[in-house]
Amino acid sequence: MAKQKSFKNLSSSPKSSMLPWLGIATIIILIDQITKVTITRLFSYGDSMPVTSFFNLVLTYNKGAAFSFLAGQDGWQRWFFTAVAVAAVIFILHLLRRHAGQRMFCWALALILGGAIGNLIDRLAYGHVIDFLDFYIPNSTLPHWPAFNVADMAIVGGAALFIIDELRRVGK
């Protein structure tokens, strides 16, 4: 019984292991890369396949950042966004080490870490990020949202968890 109690105390301490959070990030990276490899094998660039009345699978490349920010530049943005991603990964690892016992905060960090590494792999391997999820409002004159991928979803999910975590802290 004493061992169980000490194990419980260890898992909730601020010095808890980073391993679970790195495991979550790894799962995100694997799912992201598997889906990207699958879509690039099944589609040619620009191909689109309707799935529902509001969703298509499409193969597109993003040389910029979110919403194709700076995508039209002459190539320097690849290395800029690569450097930003590497810096973010290092900073997130530092935060995970320092706050490994804060569950929601670390969930957010793990999701963002996995997404950042997933897109970083694309930038290093291909010079662009592979996007393939295309949502839109049917029968609307509004344009489709920019296509995105699993890594992008993880980053947005992590950002949402950050907001929720912060609102909980402020509420206390």
Rank of each mutant, 00 (worst) to 15 (best):
Met1Leu: 14
Met1Glu: 14
Lys3Tyr: 08
Lys3Phe: 10
Lys8Phe: 13
Lys8Leu: 13
Asn9Phe: 10
Asn9Ala: 12
Ser13Pro: 13
Pro14Glu: 13
Pro14Ser: 13
Lys15Trp: 12
Leu19Tyr: 09
Ile24Val: 08
Ala25Gly: 14
Thr26Ser: 12
Thr26Met: 05
Ile27Cys: 06
Ile29Thr: 01
Asp32Gln: 00
Asp32Asn: 00
Ile34Cys: 04
Ile34Thr: 04
Ile39Lys: 01
Ser44His: 12
Tyr45Arg: 08
Gly46Thr: 05
Gly46Met: 08
Ser48Ala: 13
Ser48Met: 11
Thr52Met: 12
Ser53Gly: 07
Phe54Val: 09
Phe55Lys: 07
Phe55Pro: 01
Asn56Met: 05
Val58Tyr: 07
Thr60Met: 09
Thr60Ile: 08
Asn62Arg: 00
Lys63Trp: 02
Gly64Ser: 06
Gly64His: 04
Ala66His: 06
Ala66Cys: 05
Phe69His: 03
Leu70Ser: 07
Ala71Pro: 03
Gln73Trp: 09
Gly75Phe: 04
Gln77Val: 09
Trp79Tyr: 11
Phe81Leu: 08
Ala83Phe: 15
Val84Ala: 15
Val84Trp: 02
Ala85Lys: 06
Ala85Asp: 15
Ala85Leu: 13
Val86Met: 13
Ala87Pro: 10
Ala87Gln: 09
Phe91Val: 03
Phe91Trp: 11
Ile92Lys: 00
Leu93Gly: 03
Leu93Tyr: 02
His94Tyr: 15
Arg97Ile: 02
His99Val: 00
Ala100Ile: 00
Ala100Arg: 00
Arg103Pro: 00
Arg103Ala: 00
Met104Gly: 04
Phe105Gln: 11
Cys106Arg: 06
Trp107Ala: 09
Leu109Glu: 10
Leu109Ala: 14
Leu111Asp: 04
Leu111Asn: 05
Ile112Met: 14
Gly114Glu: 07
Ala116Asp: 08
Ala116Asn: 03
Ile117Asn: 06
Gly118Met: 01
Asn119Glu: 14
Asn119Gly: 08
Leu120Gln: 14
Ile121Cys: 15
Ile121Ser: 14
Asp122Met: 02
Arg123Tyr: 09
Tyr126Ala: 11
Tyr126Asn: 15
Ile130Leu: 05
Phe132Leu: 08
Ile137Cys: 06
Ser140Asn: 15
Thr141His: 15
Leu142Pro: 06
Leu142Lys: 15
Pro143Arg: 15
Pro143Phe: 10
Trp145Ser: 07
Pro146Asp: 11
Ala147Phe: 04
Phe148Gln: 04
Ala151Trp: 03
Asp152Lys: 08
Ile155Thr: 01
Ile155Trp: 05
Val156Asp: 10
Gly157Leu: 09
Gly157Met: 06
Phe162Trp: 12
Ile164Gln: 04
Ile164Val: 11
Glu166Phe: 10
Leu167His: 04
Leu167Lys: 09
Arg168Phe: 14
Val170Glu: 14
Gly171Arg: 12
Gly171Asp: 11
Gly171Val: 09
Lys172Ser: 14
